[in-house]
Amino acid sequence: MLHPASGTGIFTAGSALVIRFVRQGCTNRPFFHIVVAEKRKDQHMPVIEQVGTHDPLPNEHNEKLTSLNYERIRHWIGNGAVVSKPVEQLLGLAGFFPIHPTSYMTAWRNRIQEAEQQQNTIDDQQQKHTHP
């Protein structure tokens, strides 16, 4: 029988719990459920509880929509659930956690890359100007 995506609430006492993504959606259309699950279980096994969703594709207003149930996330972290890195990044951006170091890193690397590209274009233009 198909298990509910919202979670079964069943888990072994004392097992390691984790808050992580489950990739739903289909080919070329990712969609993630944020769930509390047992760490040793497979991604698509029945989960304990769903605590949010994340849509990584920007919508028509250029927004990536995410929903989070803070109350339950607080409860599960309080009861020993660890948080996976992508979810940590997301929670950081949501303001629930401190910003994750990788978010900072990606940001500054992007900035450096952008600056380099701009410099390159300026150089190209100057070269064209001097040697038409």
């Binding site: 607080r74 409860h75 972290i77 309080g78 009861n79 020993g80 956690f97 401190p98």
Partner: peptide, 15 residues
């Protein structure tokens, strides 16, 4: 920061 946050939440929510 996460450690302190976890400790706080544990005190508050742990069954």
């Amino acid at each position: 920061q996460i450690k302190s946050l976890r400790r706080y939440l544990t005190y508050k929510h742990c069954t």
